[in-house]
Design a protein around this nucleic acid. Structure first.
Length: 535
RNA sequence: GGGCCGCUAGCUCAAUCGGCAGAGCAACAGCCUUUUAAGCUGCAGGUUCAGGGUUCGAUUCCCUGGCGGCUCACCA
């Protein structure tokens, strides 16, 4: 512990306040710690708190105590805001003068020139300049401002609007109130906070410092709102399905396992909403959707997090072509909400999101890029050879569908820059999609690709209970051969299908990745407020 | 999981070949009544991620560990 003069000063100040505050004003007690009561009191715990502070924080905490000594509460319970900063600016732009206004916000910059200080005040809606002049505030208040206010403090400023000689809208402050003293200093104002770990772990610092970060998350909110509005408008009903599931399913992925004490059994965190949502169609809801977190116990990188946000929607009496329209509409709605334009920049790519989007069959796309016909007889070994060229891992249990998927991912996916629907996915990797009429090797399924990445996945949903049962059985076989992502048999789901599910189109879209695309962010961690980091 | 890179003051970053650990911002003591990353003077601020090793001497070289980033693999 450092016992420098500043620190001793803070101690004295704190002790002074609390002895007085606890009605123990007594010269003997005041400076004689031995006579303080042995029981823990506010003074003790405040002392312990001070011991946890760094030097700069102690300096600021000293100001907290100084304010209290003078009868000023540094954390008052209420404010008297009359306008947001954005509202004041809007009035000004219309040429209206609101008269005396009271604004609240965080002080983010000070430029002082003697008996005048220009300060920046920022609230959730914008930034405005405060003009603090000794002549307006009075010498004592002005000195109090200089001594006790720091960058980062929340303050309330009252005054009238005027333009400085450089033409900047400012508040001529006549009254200043501390709303919340910041004990810890803000990150540096010019470079801001760049350390990525700190930005993710202490997101509040990132948000208070970096305008771009706030912009990304506001855009994300607009994207989700636009998506919901579109689905609501088109008679999709928003529902909630279980996160904790006795049997997980609906996607090919590894789950998180948790344990229920009273039930004495394992439960799984859902990997998809699909099977529960489609049961609702059996129950005769015609259009349902859910926007929620899914969990997959897999790798963490720039496009994968263990928890991520998914939108799934299902439309009874619809099919793949209806989902194509939903996807195209959603891209238009969300892009408009996020940035206003359908022509977007993503990294080095310029992309036009104006429908209709291109369509290509998986076979044709692979044929074009690799000269391999996945339908030819010798396909299996040829696929393996080409995949080996790419240094991709070929597991012995991989079937034709998995090899096709690998090849597609390596040779085709990165080349799909303009929005493209890829159709006709292998049946083996599409256990919930209806087979294509006349060609049981592939399904009525598409994925939408933009800028080399996938943003959505849709099927004409499989509603034949016998076929579904067989697909589950095949998955069981895959599992037996070591495929950790294979589906478990879901008898109850098959039972539901036995009661009849209407012909249905279904779609899943990753909200995080869509937000990445529309905000030009290249790590999923930058579009999730609190991303899981390694540890 | 593999490879590469990084971790220095509250923040952003320096430190030559292994030779006294520095600057800007923030803070502190002052000056300055229209500033825009304000300016000026002064002062203070460090477990150089942790532990070990080599060395007269380690921020620097070596080893181990921690945390992170990028990338490859895995994966929706």
């Amino acid at each position: 512990m450092k016992f420098n003069d500043r620190w001793a000063d803070t101690r004295q100040c704190v002790r002074f306040f609390y002895t007085r505050g606890l009605q123990r004003i007594d010269g003997a007690i005041f400076f004689d710690a031995v006579k303080l009561p042995p029981a823990r009191c506010a003074w003790d715990s405040t002392m312990e708190f001070i011991d946890t502070l760094g030097d700069l924080e102690r300096e600021r905490f000293l100001k907290v105590q100084r304010l209290r000594e003078r009868g000023i509460e540094p954390y008052p319970p209420r404010t008297a805001r009359t306008h947001t900063i954005a509202a004041v600016r809007a009035l000004d732009e219309r040429g209206e003068d609101p008269g005396v206004v009271t604004l609240v916000g965080r002080m983010t910059a000070n430029r002082w020139t003697g008996k005048i200080t220009f300060a920046d005040l920022r609230d959730g809606t914008g930034r405005i300049q405060l003009f603090l002049r000794q002549d307006n505030l009075g010498a004592e208040t002005y000195k109090h401002f200089l001594k006790d206010y720091d960058l980062g403090d929340f303050a309330q400023a009252t005054g009238s609007l005027f333009k400085t000689k450089t033409g900047e809208l400012s508040v001529q402050v006549t009254e200043l109130v501390m709303l919340a003293k910041a004990v810890a200093p803000m990150p540096e104002k010019f470079h801001g906070l760049t350390d990525k770990e700190t930005r993710y772990r202490q997101r509040y610092l990132d948000l208070m410092t970096n305008e771009e970060t706030r912009g990304v998350f506001r855009a994300r909110q607009r994207i989700v709102t636009a998506m919901r509005a579109y689905l609501d408008r088109n008679d999709f009903i928003e529902v909630e399905t279980p996160v904790l599931q006795a049997l997980y399913g609906g996607a090919l992925a590894k789950p998180f396992i948790t344990y229920h004490n009273e039930l004495e059994r394992n439960l799984y965190l859902r990997i998809a909403d699909e099977l529960y949502l489609k049961r609702l169609l059996v129950g005769m809801f015609e259009r349902v959707y859910e926007i929620s977190k899914d969990f997959r116990n897999e790798g963490v990188d720039a496009t994968h997090l263990p928890e991520f946000t998914m939108m799934e929607c299902y439309q009874a009496f619809g099919d793949l072509s209806d989902m194509i329209k939903v996807v195209e509409d959603l891209f238009v709605e969300c892009a408009t909400a996020a940035g206003g334009a359908l022509q977007i920049t993503y990294g080095e790519h310029q992309v036009d999101l104006t429908p209709p989007f291109a369509r290509v069959a998986m076979r044709d796309a692979i044929l074009e890029k690799t000269a391999i016909d996945i339908y030819a007889d010798d396909t299996f070994d040829a696929l393996k050879a080409r995949i080996a060229e790419k240094n991709l891992r070929v597991e012995p249990q991989m079937n034709w569908g998995k090899l096709v998927e690998k090849l597609f991912g390596a040779y085709v996916e990165p080349t799909l820059i303009e929005p493209t629907f890829v159709v006709d996915f292998p049946t083996e990797i599409s256990p919930f999609a209806k087979k294509k009429p006349g060609d049981p090797r592939v399904t009525e399924r598409f994925e939408i690709y933009v800028a080399g990445a996938e943003y959505g996945n849709a099927f004409t949903e499989l509603n034949d209970p016998a076929d579904q049962w067989q697909r589950f059985m095949e998955q069981q076989g895959n599992r037996a051969r070591g495929d950790a992502e294979a589906q478990q048999m879901d008898q109850d789901y098959v039972q539901a299908l036995k009661h009849g599910m209407p012909p249905t189109g279904g779609l899943g879209m990753g909200i995080d990745r869509l937000t990445m695309l529309l905000t030009n962010q290249h790590s999923i961690r930058d579009v999730v407020l609190y991303p899981q980091l390694r540890t």
